[in-house]
Amino acid sequence: MRYVYFAVEGPHDVEFVARFLKLHGLKRIQHKPQLAPFWGPVLPTTWPSPLGSTDLMKRVSVPAFFQNDAVSVAIDAVTGDSQLLISAINVRNTVNQPGGDELHAIGIVLDSDEKSSASERFTKISKELAAVKLPLAVTPGQVVDGPPRIGIFVLPDNVNAGTLEDLLIDCAEKQYPQLLASARTHIDSVKAEFPPYAKEDLVDFQKPAGRRKALVGSIGSVLRPGKAIQMSIQDNRWIDGEALELPRVKMFRAFVDALLAPSPVPALAPGVGATSA
């Protein structure tokens, strides 16, 4: 069994990665007896969690798990560069046991946000992983052999500024073109004028990715009324059919495929490097 760990930035990213796992026949694990014992050390043993916490409102952090006969995957939703690093390092140190199974691969997926470029966020994380004796990835999207195999993907395409929503909008153009068009009309009609809005009403909407997030949310509210967007990503056809042939989607798919594949690292599509450490 190959064990793969993903650290991502939120629940939407968890479900996005999960759609590519589904293409490998991996199924979500809901009940603990079905989970590979390898992951036992990452399961919380206290509540509130972590040990020493008193916050009753904080959700207990548990990865989402997916398995088939050959691969077992854990996907953790965390926030910020420091937590992405801490999660990846802690999992490597926790699950690897002398004489036992070892982690096959670590994938880190993050956005290129308004504060840092794709190369800046990648460089920071890559160097800090290498500082704790993990393999050094040279370029965003590259997968290097280990152990453990390492890959860092900066959404939407390892080069341009953006977020997961940019890829979802690409997918909607293929899968839900009419919904996308009507959602754009709705979002474009919103003018940040006070009144009719209070200043606090549109704080998130006016952030750099606000309109794109609202656009995806508008489509999701039709596909899964009253449910969170991650449920629509999980259940609907965002990442399916013609959307799988989109260049940026194919790039991400190749990244996931390379992390899951047995050794050696397979050759990746143009735009995604692969080397041996």
Rank of each mutant, 00 (worst) to 15 (best):
G10H: 04
I229L: 14
P196F: 03
P44A: 05
A105D: 04
E200N: 11
G271D: 10
L35M: 00
N68D: 15
D111Q: 05
L26F: 11
A274I: 04
E193D: 02
K213R: 13
F20T: 11
G10W: 09
W39T: 04
S82Q: 15
A243K: 02
R212E: 12
D235C: 02
F38D: 01
L167S: 04
S221C: 08
I187D: 05
R19V: 01
E173K: 15
L167A: 05
L35H: 08
V265Y: 08
W47T: 11
Q34I: 04
T163M: 14
Q206M: 07
G271W: 09
G220W: 01
D204S: 15
P135E: 05
K207F: 11
V132M: 10
Q230Y: 01
V154A: 06
K213T: 09
P50M: 05
A172P: 00
R248Q: 08
G40K: 12
P270D: 11
I108L: 14
P63S: 10
P50T: 10
W39K: 00
V95H: 10
L215G: 01
A105N: 12
L23G: 01
Q30M: 04
K124H: 09
S87C: 13
I86C: 11
A267E: 13
K27R: 12
V138Q: 15
D235W: 13
I108D: 07
G99K: 11
S116N: 10
L246A: 06
Q30C: 02
L260Y: 04
Q142N: 03
F66M: 02
I106K: 12
G100Y: 08
R149N: 12
S182G: 01
V256Q: 02
V109Q: 07
S61D: 03
G151Y: 03
A18T: 09
P44K: 07
P147R: 11
G141R: 09
S218E: 12
A214I: 03
H31N: 03
N96G: 00
D204Q: 05
V216N: 05
N93A: 14
H186A: 10
A261L: 08
L110T: 14
P37M: 04
V109F: 03
R237T: 09
F255W: 10
A161I: 01
P44M: 02
N96D: 15
Q34P: 00
A130V: 04
I152S: 06
K22G: 02
I233S: 04
V78G: 11
Q30T: 12
D113G: 07
T45E: 07
S218T: 14
L244A: 09
T46K: 14
E15S: 01
P270N: 12
S119P: 04
N93S: 14
V95C: 15
G226W: 08
D69P: 02
Q142D: 01
V216P: 04
I75F: 13
T94V: 01
I89D: 02
F255G: 10
V216C: 01
K213W: 03
L136Q: 12
I29L: 06
A118Y: 07
A137V: 15
K115I: 02
V138R: 15
K199R: 13
D111G: 03
V91G: 00
L43M: 12
F66D: 09
S87Q: 02
I219P: 00
S87A: 14
D201F: 10
R121E: 03
D69E: 12
P225I: 09
A192H: 08
